[in-house]
Design a protein around this nucleic acid. Structure first.
Lengths: 233, 233
DNA sequence: AACGGTATGATTTTCGAAAATATGGTTCTG
DNA sequence: CAGAACCATATTTTCGAAAATCATACCGTT
């Protein structure tokens, strides 16, 4: 049956609202919608082809994730960025990710090792193919996300994984913010490789040290190259 | 002007949606709506006097907080409870709350000390008044929440405070779950007093130890007295 | 000119009807 | 009698119009 031709757009979820939530999230993270930008319903309605109500539901969900700022009776806007927020997100990520890496290394089984190795492999393949601007490449972004996700996936706590995922998204937005101004990506491939090896060899202390450095240096990079964008508000 | 007579209900927020979100959250935490219970729009519509759309927005927000479970195309239900979830929530709370207590003790100023002392004072007053079933008393619940909030309020991270608040709510629901079966509340007053003293005297290690014990013993209590409610799903 | 109040237009928020989807029961078939 | 296919009903999901609210410009007064 050609029912895919009938349904308009439901790529990521069964409901339109879930779909719009996903698309809006991606656009905000990629800074296709600038931080602080007002999200007017007329504009969104045209861009996403959904009704007021459906958009409202999506914006409410994203507000709970910290990517959208709900101003009661005065609409929504993309969550603003600031040095303070960048510091907080970085800091929270270190606290949680370090703990989850430890637990994953402690509890990870064969499937976990395979997931870590294979997601890194894919990431490297994509980087070889086009080493220039990885954040511009949607495939790289997905592979990168999946590698870091795999590292902590054996921690055993869906609750903490959900919190980690939110913080990861918020941090990714800052990376995009600085991507346009950063002269050249640093040697992430090497860092990822080292983290993988530390994890697989069950060297928790080393893995933790590398992850923390990885997160903090990314954050420092943003502060250096996008600092001028963080002072407006 | 008698405009309060015109407006129907907007106690907690400027919008009806924010209001409903707040009321629904309280009911779910207090187990007025049982874990796993389906949330049908007809019923909610009658109980809260709001339209489909407004209710949907509230439910979406609560789903992001982990108090509601959204089943695409099959509506919403109160988030189910389980031993696993209780363990995860307890565990995540310890991880985060311990860190925030340390930071607050490190950074807290005079105002912080005053907030800690005064919120505890109010809590004790309420307990003296009616020492029986504190969770039944809305005032006690608010005072208890505010005391624990005050303890960590000087940590300097709005991001982590928001995460902590969500976990606190989820844990409070479990406390309510066991409240009906627990024979008698243990000596919380003494525990709170000891935590306050450790914090004010800037004894971080002791405060951390007490808080962790406080959180874990509460959780153990739930597992003991409400265990039979945690196995259904 | 400065200020306060008011009308006007823009925008958000809320509503209930209509469409889409799931659920449960009934019949028909092997 | 088991199981698939269908229909009828219950429920969720989506829509655009209508109400409520906010922002701005205008006017009159001091």
């Amino acid at each position: 049956m050609p029912d895919s031709a009938i349904r308009p757009r439901k790529e990521f979820g069964k409901t339109i609202a879930a779909d719009i939530t996903h698309r809006l999230r991606e656009e905000i993270i990629a800074c296709g919608l600038a931080p602080g930008e007002p999200l007017r319903f007329d504009v969104l309605r045209e861009r996403f082809g959904a009704s007021f109500t459906t958009l409202r539901e999506a914006l409410t969900a994203l507000a709970a994730e910290g990517l959208v700022d709900a101003q009661e009776q005065r609409g929504f806007r993309v969550a603003p960025v600031s040095r303070q927020d960048l510091v907080e997100v970085t800091d929270a990520r270190v606290l949680i990710e370090v703990e989850l890496i430890r637990r994953s290394i402690e509890r990870g089984d064969d499937d976990w090792e395979i997931a870590v190795i294979s997601t890194l492999h894919r990431l490297k393949r994509i980087e070889q193919r086009d080493p220039e601007h990885p954040l511009r490449d949607p495939e790289w972004k997905i592979a990168h996300r999946q590698f870091h996700q795999a590292l902590v996936s054996a921690c055993g706590s869906a609750t903490l994984l959900a919190i980690r995922a939110e913080l990861f998204d918020r941090a990714e937005r800052y990376r995009h913010l600085s991507a346009n101004f950063r002269p050249r990506p640093r040697d992430k491939a090497g860092e990822h490789q080292a983290i993988m090896q530390a994890a697989i060899s069950r060297n928790a202390d080393l893995a933790v040290q590398l992850i923390e450095a990885h997160i903090r240096s990314t954050s420092d990079n943003v502060a250096t190259y996008a600092g001028h964008l963080l002072d407006t508000e």
